[in-house]
């Protein structure tokens, strides 16, 4: 299906992030790659829960003309959105930890290159 373009966008994001993680040596670039992979996973969850022509699963200020009879078939799925919410906060926490570790590594070794850090180890 050519209409699966959002899924391919997800795979493209994950590929870009994995390339940065696997083939770059700078720790900051690796952190950016991890963040891009996280964005891809979040987009994947949201894409899984999308329903064609759906509105947000919130009953406050519904669009005018929405009747109760058509409601379960007209809203996007709430569970993937909730999981994405959890995943975003965990991503922020992990990113903060990664960056502070990178700062400490730079302070101790004087470099951010992953291979040089490995070589300097006693």
């Amino acid at each position: 299906m050519i209409y699966n373009l959002p899924f391919m966008t997800v795979i493209a994001l994950i590929a870009i992030g994995m390339y940065a993680i696997l083939f770059r040596r700078n720790l900051i670039k690796i952190a950016i790659g991890i963040t891009i992979v996280e964005s891809g996973v979040n987009l994947f969850l949201i894409t899984l829960g999308y329903r064609k022509g759906g509105i947000a699963p919130i009953f406050t200020n519904l669009p005018p003309g929405t009747t109760p009879e058509e409601i379960p078939g007209k809203m996007v799925l709430p569970v993937p959105q909730a999981l994405t919410l959890t995943s975003i906060v965990i991503g922020v926490a992990v990113l903060a930890l990664i960056l502070s570790l990178a700062i400490q590594i730079y302070r101790n070794y004087g470099t951010l290159n992953a291979e040089k850090v490995r070589r300097l180890k006693e």
Partner: peptide, 8 residues
């Protein structure tokens, strides 16, 4: 619990 948003 009413509009988009929440604690996070």
């Amino acid at each position: 619990h009413l509009t988009p948003g929440g604690g996070f």
